[in-house]
Structure formats: C-alpha cells, structure tokens
Design a protein around this nucleic acid. Sequence first.
DNA 1: TGTACATCAGTGAACGCGCGTTCACTGATGTAC
DNA 2: TGTACATCAGTGAACGCGCGTTCACTGATGTAC
Lengths: 203, 203
Amino acid sequence: MPGYHHGALREALLAAAEALLLEQGVDAFTLRACARRAGVSHAAPAHHFGDARGLLTAFATVGFERMAALMQRHRDAAPPDPVLQLQAVGQAYIDFALANRAHFQLMFGSDRLDPGDAQLAAAGQATAEMLGQAMAAVMADRQLPPASLPQRLLLAWSAVHGYATLVTEGQCNGLFGLSPDNPQAAQAAGAAMLALLGPALAA
Amino acid sequence: MPGYHHGALREALLAAAEALLLEQGVDAFTLRACARRAGVSHAAPAHHFGDARGLLTAFATVGFERMAALMQRHRDAAPPDPVLQLQAVGQAYIDFALANRAHFQLMFGSDRLDPGDAQLAAAGQATAEMLGQAMAAVMADRQLPPASLPQRLLLAWSAVHGYATLVTEGQCNGLFGLSPDNPQAAQAAGAAMLALLGPALAA
DNA sequence: TGTACATCAGTGAACGCGCGTTCACTGATGTAC
DNA sequence: TGTACATCAGTGAACGCGCGTTCACTGATGTAC
C-alpha cells in the first residue's frame, strides 16, 4: 500500500465519510474533511465521486445494499411462519439502523443525495421490496383482503422506521433509556414492539 | 412598521427561517441568508438569538409548543372513548408534521439544536406527555397491565413518528403516492394506519 | 525480455466565495425629573 | 409639557477562515510491439 497510488481510495473515502458522519453529523460533512481523514489530497475525491453529493449518494447506496442483504439473512434464519418472517425483516431494519447509524440517517434523512441516481434508486427499491414481499406472504397465508396491503405495509414500515429513527436520533434516550450506544437494549425493545405489532398486521 | 427599528424582528426572523428551511433544507440554512430573507442587516439576528444554533433552537421550541397545542385540541374534539382520543392525538402528530414540515424536520432530525436549552427541553417534554397521558388513559380504561406501558407507548410513538417522517421526507411518494403536497391524502392514509393500530394498543 | 507510450490516479498551488463574528456607529425608544 | 440621557435595536465595513473548483503537474500502471 505505497505512496502515490492509493489503490483502494474509493473504499477508503467511504470509510472516512462514515467516521466523519458519525462524529460530526451530516451538516459538517465536507469533501475536504473527508479527503483529510483519508490522508489524501483534497482534490483526489473528485476522481472517484465528482462532488460531495456523488460521494454521499454512493455511500447511501452501499447502505441500502447492506440493509437488503441483512433483511434477506434475517428472513432466511427465521422459522417458516410468515408472521415471524415479517418480524424478522422488521428486526433487520432496526438492527441495520443501530449498527449503521451514519448510513441510515443519510439514506432516509438527508437532502444531500442525488435523487436521480439510478443505482441509489435501484438499491432503495430492492430494499423496499423485501418488506413488501414479507408482508404479502403474511397476507396470502392469512387470506387477508389484498386491497389492504398498502395500509398494512404503511403501518409496518412506519413502525420500524419510526422506532429506528427515534433511537438513532437519540430521542428515546431520556424517556426510555434507549440509545444506539446500547444496541442490545434497543434491539430487545424493538423486538417487543414488533411482537406487539405482529398480530395486528396478521388479523 | 418603519425604518430603523423593525419592531417584530424576532418573529420575522423565525418566519424567514421557516421559508428558507422549506425551500433549501436545513443544510443550506445560514444566519446571513436568514437575515437577507428578513430584509435586515446580517448582524441583526445576533441581538435576538446569538447564533444560528440559538435561532434554530427557538424555532424548534415554537414547533413543540404548536404540536402540543394541536394535540390538546384534537383530543378535546374527540369522542370520550380513550382509544379514539389516543388516535386523535396520533393524528395531531401527523397533521402537525404535514402542516409544519420545516418545524418537524428540525425538531426531530437535526443536530443543529442546542440540547441543553431549557425551553426546548420543557416544550419537548410537554409534547411527549400528551402522548403518554393519552396512552395511560387507554390502559386504565381497558385495565391493561401497567408494566406494558413503555412498549405500547414506544409502538404508538414509533408508528406516528415513522409515518410522519416518511411522508415529510418524501419517501412515500413513489410507492404510495403520498406527499406533503397533498396533505388530505396523507392525512387519510395516516388515519387508516391509526385505525389499524388502535385495536392492537388496546388489547 | 525490453522499450515506448498512453492512460490513469493523486498532488498542490491558486482562485473566488459566502460564511460567522467583531466593532464602532447611529437611529429610535423610553424614562427620570 | 419639555428636556436630558440611558438603553436598546439595527447598520455596515472589516477580518479571517474553510470551502468547492480548477488546472498544470507528476508519479505509477498497464499495454503494444
């Protein structure tokens, strides 16, 4: 890993971005700070990402891909009951947010992404479909009216997204003692929430 | 409303901040742009707010106060059934977010607030208590085990917060056609979601 | 195997810009007598 | 009622800073022959 040519600068910049976002928040993110963090000239990132928007968009895309992969893993590991599988997917949503706070906040909370980016859109859609398919499986299994899919999906998504958002933003710290610094407790509380919600979605 | 002395600059700056936040997002917010928007010298805001953090903190505090007031109104207007009242409070949460996107996003999504500000903390706590009381009333009415209050509260809060966040961030635009630009549709979908959730919280 | 050359990845100096902050100031308001 | 004066609210010029972007460059890699 020598001098002039870095070799894996793209990945190094994404790692530097994560550290910066976690430490200072997205408001403080600058291309120069990111390059500094990666130990590289401040003009170097332009070769890989164009500008800050491009870098953050690539960062968010990686986030969606990771999230979808985690959902798949959780679902595969769950018992064959569709409701349990739906809960597993929801838990993956929460777990991902806790373990990748910087990605999660950027993916859903920032206006510094390029909304027209094709890869970002594809990754986001693939992630959404994981949840949609799990919900559809529940509905088929319980013979629920297909017309109610949107509402059910919206409720499920809102619950996991709201919980993940509240915890990662630190809003649950005072009232419930839940913070991303204690992921075990936050995961457990999320599981309890999903256990309470599951039956409502399957009825 | 004459020349040198503005007379209501504090309020004018908060209004200018709202317009800027809606148009450009919180990332682009600067004290100078805010002063420009209010038609005033760029050094003027310091007299009222100190710095940008102070201004945004005051702005968020106003948001929490408005939200709590709307919750109270919705609850008072609802039928005497505790579950319906809880749903009314939840609907107020959603309605507030839709009607005050700039406030909402700043209140919950920004790291540009002063976390030590006493007024902000008080206003936030008062808002949280509105939801907590409505939930407690449901539990007393249905004789539910008091120990389950935190989980139930967390589920209710997560659902309304998640929904409000997803819609105001524009995440529900593609898949569900819900955007803050069409508040009626977004309110209706939120009501449907709450109708689905209500029984789960009261059982 | 060796040489020439095109391409790529990163450098570092330079630029102009908008920002936050400071500060002496000035115009208006309110209060004491 | 009038006058003097303190206090307050807003001005505008000035500063230093970090930012994004540009650009000629240089060191390394890969490929053709």
